[in-house]
Each structure stands twice: as structure tokens, then as C-alpha cells.
Design a protein around this nucleic acid. Structure first.
Lengths: 334, 334
DNA sequence: TTGTAAGCGTTATCAC
DNA sequence: GTGATAACGCTTACAA
């Protein structure tokens, strides 16, 4: 491995000068600057980032906590994060969050990351304290179930989003509207149900518990099973339209309908949330709420880096959502 | 930030002892060990990984080069990589590879990563030299178009996979079989066409150039457009079945067929490669080659870590594929 | 069994 | 403008 010392020797200057050149300090005389650059090129030198970090206390690495890398919604956000981070020379360390191994995080990121970006996880107070103490900043994309005072978030306004959705369904004559949620405490999906219910209420509709379906962890498979077993039980559905907390579940529900001979949207309207790519390629394509994944990724990285560089405090961000009406929702059947 | 020195002072021992305890050296007397652990707990200390890396020359970080994080096939591999890496305390740094910024990689990973895992990218010889020189190991998941002697790969046997696929189609009476590929040099998709063609030949079938469709970068959208414009042109398709180099393109082709009134598989059989989740939830579900993403991720990390720890040379790995027959392929129409 | 101290490759503060 | 040199927090001979 070629170090800065060798470059210095090769160029016939001191190590300090090499550092000056690398870090673009304007003090260096052009001639020596060229000598050094020449030596760097000849030796194929590139500075050891670990050593640099140790000295400067800036890691230029940001941790990102996934719930499930395989979820296209989360990777959509990751895409935005990564694109923006790269522009600033920041690397992202992706980790899957496992609630049962939360302590692991502390050791994993100590002195490795300048900040950690959460995807709606509900960290323990203890963990938050630890990172606060060692100076690792926390920021969350999507609000967790119980927002923590010290962790700012970026998210859309789910209440307004679902108000628009409910409004859309009401125009089609639906009044008995169901919801498929994922209620495990840790998930960012949990909060969506709360807002959906409020949206219903604000439209003067009630929500009956029997109309709530549990998609467990928000997976396609679970949703499929829930719906399939409900349909094959023979009893009538207690709703004429169902809104799913994410697209994957809506796709599962849709598959279950197809396999059980339920016509969508003629017999059941299905709507969902997120607008992942897949949601526009089902048949019928899904009516859904567009979540600005790329933008929220950009916003997040910008806010975090800005905070890191200038100390500007991190605050909450609310991004714009949009209702995408496609053909999985239609007039209620009389 | 609490350092090892403070722990030592707090516990009334020397810094070395603290290190011994942290690194589980068996030399330490149990009593002092407890004292140290106590101090660590009280102070909420965790070792600075950057400093450790500087000293040990082990980063415990592995770079992973994506082509597109949004591609569920690639994230499926990432999932396997990540799960296995975490077990060994390795973090993954995910980066999107941009051919036009390849030099960027050198600075990005210098002294940051012990190894870099490629997803079939075709690195420049210059870049490979650089990483070889600074001791960063390279390993590729999926063979690139022109395998590099110094970069071992893990992949399935595409020739055999496509032989099985062609065999399946022949049984349905197909002889005019098309292919949709993605031919940009850099992509791991490129190699699949070569193997498909050989598979056809080995079955005594010829491949005509007119039967090759270009899905460009392997995206759903491009594939859709290609197929849609072909269908709306009014001329007959030059094949009765088409195999796509990946599922996303097959889904695009399928959508185009649906939108243009082409019945699948009655009028056209569609098959694909990879078996991402989505491929089993289209209508009809896709016949496809299962690519063992999780397993290949595991294998890769194990090989790399083993190499890092013991120096065992990295070699090529061939994993098992499987043909998943679903309903997007059927008897040829007479 | 524990302590001392050299050194990992940088940056940054001084002198010169 | 440039050159010594002290950190940064850790591991690990080697000494005690």
C-alpha cells in the first residue's frame, strides 16, 4: 500500500505539503503542487480514508437502517438516498434492523457513521441516548408509531393523503370501506391506519373493527393468505372497497381476488399506498397514493449533510403526496 | 466521546487490559475483567471502529456495487449478502456503479473496504490493477460479458438453464423462439443471450436475428415500449414464444400484450429469467428460471470472508438454477 | 497477569 | 511556502 510518506519522498517534499495538495489548500506553490500531483499519479496513491477519518472525526459514512432490503418501497427510498449521498462523497452503510438485536447497532456504528437514517424504526430510548452521547445524529424517513422528540422525520401527510383517497371512494358510492394494515409496533406501516381512520371520520364515515384486516408484516404473501381465507370462508365481505397500507399487500389482495373469482373493481374496489412500480403493472392497475421516495431520499440526505457541515438543527419535513387513480377502484355495486 | 483511555482510568487498569477484555483475550484475570466490563457499561463505551481498522488493517466493511438499487433482482442478492455479512460482523457499503465515474470508486473505497463485490460489472483493467495493488479483493456475483481472469465469479450455468427452458418450449411445439436481451456491454444481462443462443443450437434450432428484441437496459418500461410498438405495427411476430433475459422485461412484454389484445399464452408464450417475486403475481404468472439470489449472496460473502481470514484463494462458484413452469407458456397455436 | 510504548496514515499547529 | 511533529483511538509486542 502506497502511503503519503512515499509520495512525499518521491516528490522530494515533506508530508505536510502532500496533505496540502490533497486537501486543496491554496498555500502551495504551483510548481510543487504539480510535482506532488505527478508523484501521486505515478505511484497510484489515494489517501487512506480510515486514517483521515480518525484524525478529522468525520467518517463520511451514513448508516441506513432497513426493515427489509427486499421491499421495493424501501429500496426506492434507498435509491434517492444513495444518489444524493454520492454527490457529496458520502457512502451509505446499509443494515437491516432487527429489533431483537438492537444493541448490536451501537457497536456496529461506533466511530463509523456520522449519522444514522432510520426507515421508521422505533428505537429504544437507551439506544437513542447512546448515539446522542457519542455524537451520531439520527434522522427518520417516515414517522414511527410513537415519534421520538429527538429524532426529526421526513414523511408525507398521511391524513390528507387518505382524506383524498376516501373522498375518491365516496364519489364512487362507497361507504363501507375496509383497511388492511400491519400492526406490529415497530413498523412504519402502523401509523397509516391511525390516519386512515381519522380520514374516514372527517368524512363523516365510521370505521368498524370488522373491516380491519391484518396484513401482519406488510408482505404480499400474508395479505394474500388473509384475503384468500376470508373469501373462501363464504361469508360476505364487510366492505365494498379496501385500502391497503402498502402496495405489496394490495397486490396480494388482488391475487387472492383473482384466484377466488372476485372481480376487481366490479365486486371489490382495491386501493393502496406507496405507488411502487409494480402497482401500475397489475391487472387492473392499482389506485394508490404516490409516496415521493426519491425526493424524500434527497431531502433527507441534504438535511443530514447540511446539519453535519453547518450545525443547522434538523427539523421535520413534510413532502407532497399525490393520489394516483387507476382502474382497481370503481363504482360501488348496488 | 468516551475512549478506551477513560475506561482504563475509570476501571483503574491500563489501556492494554481494556483492549484485552474487548478482544476477548483469555489472559485477563476474571476479577479485572469484570471491573473493566463494569466500567464499559457505566461509561457507555464502545470502541471506535475507525481507529481499530487503522491499526489492524481490517475494515470489516465490504463494498457492494449495484447497477440499480431499484431492481428487485439485485436487491434480492443484496438481501443474501447482507444477512450473511451481518453474521460475521461485516458491514456492507452499497454503491451504485456508474461506468462514467469509475475512477470515483478508487477514492471511495481506498482504505475503507476489505473487498468489493461486483454485480456483473465490467471494470476497467486500470481499476482492477488499482484495487489489486492496494489489496482490495474483487469478487463478482454473476459473470460479466468478458470475465476478467483476476475476478472470480459466482453464477448459475445459464447454458443449462436455457437448455431446460428451450426444452420446455419445444415440448409445447415451439420452434420459432425469440429472445429479449439487454445488450449494453456493461450489463450482466448481456451474457445471457449468448447462452440462450447456444442452448437453441444445441437443440437443433436456429436463431434468426429478427427474433432478437432489444430491451435496452433491462427495464420494464423499455421492454413494454419495444413490444408495444412491435405489436401496433401490425406485422406478425417472428416467433411464437419469447424468452426474456430478466423478469422485469417479461412483465413489460406481458403488459404490452395485454394492452394490445394479445392473449398469453394462447397467442404468445412468454418466459423469463430470475424469478423475482413479482413474476409469480402477474396474470398469467410467468414461467421463469429461478436464480438463487439468497444462496448466491451467502456463498459470496462466505467465500470472501474466508479468503480474507485465511487467505484461501477465491474461486468460481456455480450454483443450482431451477425451471419454474407457470402459466405464461403454453402450447403453440397452429 | 498487567503495563509501557511503538506505530497505523492521516491532519493541523507550529516554527522556520 | 514548506517542514517537523503532536495528536486521533486503537492493537500488540515486549517488559515487568
Amino acid at each position: 500500500m502506497v502511503t503519503r510518506d512515499e509520495v512525499a519522498r518521491h516528490a522530494g517534499v515533506s508530508v505536510a505539503v502532500v496533505s496540502y495538495v490533497i486537501n486543496n489548500k491554496p498555500v502551495v506553490k504551483e510548481a510543487t503542487r504539480q510535482k506532488v500531483l505527478q508523484a501521486i499519479r505515478e505511484l497510484g496513491y489515494s489517501p487512506n480514508l480510515t486514517a483521515r477519518s480518525l484524525k478529522t472525526r468525520r467518517m463520511n459514512q451514513i448508516g441506513v437502517l432497513f426493515n427489509h432490503i427486499g421491499n421495493p418501497f424501501e429500496t426506492g427510498i434507498a435509491l434517492g438516498l444513495e444518489q444524493r449521498a454520492r454527490k457529496d462523497g458520502q457512502s451509505l452503510i446499509f443494515q437491516t434492523y432487527d429489533p431483537s438485536e438492537e444493541d448490536h447497532l451501537k457497536t456496529l456504528f461506533s466511530g463509523r457513521a456520522d449519522a444514522i437514517i432510520l426507515l421508521g424504526q422505533q428505537l429504544k430510548a437507551d439506544t437513542i441516548d447512546h448515539f446522542t452521547k457519542i455524537g451520531v445524529n439520527l434522522f427518520s424517513v417516515m414517522m414511527p408509531q410513537q415519534p421520538h422528540a429527538r429524532i426529526p422525520c421526513a414523511d408525507i401527510d398521511w391524513f390528507e393523503a387518505y382524506r383524498a383517497m376516501v373522498d375518491h371512494l365516496i364519489r364512487f358510492g362507497h361507504t363501507r370501506i375496509g383497511f388492511m394494515g400491519a400492526l406490529n409496533r415497530e413498523s412504519y406501516l402502523g401509523i397509516r391506519f391511525r390516519h386512515f381512520r381519522q380520514a374516514l371520520l372527517s368524512h363523516g364515515l365510521e370505521f368498524r373493527d370488522e373491516r380491519l384486516m391484518h396484513g401482519s408484516f406488510g408482505t404480499l404473501e400474508m395479505a394474500y393468505e388473509q384475503m384468500a381465507s376470508r373469501l373462501s370462508s363464504g361469508t360476505d365481505l364487510p366492505f365494498t372497497a379496501i385500502v391497503c397500507a402498502n402496495d405489496l399487500m394490495a397486490i396480494g389482495v388482488l391475487s387472492a381476488c383473482r384466484d377466488n373469482g372476485v372481480a376487481v373493481p366490479e365486486q371489490l374496489s382495491i386501493a393502496s399506498s406507496e405507488n411502487i412500480l409494480m402497482s401500475s403493472h397489475t391487472s387492473p392497475p392499482l389506485t394508490t397514493i404516490h409516496y415521493p421516495r426519491r425526493e424524500i431520499g434527497f431531502t433527507t440526505i441534504e438535511a443530514v449533510i447540511n446539519h453535519l457541515n453547518t450545525g443547522t438543527p434538523l427539523t421535520n419535513y413534510t413532502l407532497n403526496h399525490e393520489l394516483f387513480v387507476r382502474s382497481s377502484t370503481g363504482k360501488v355495486r348496488d
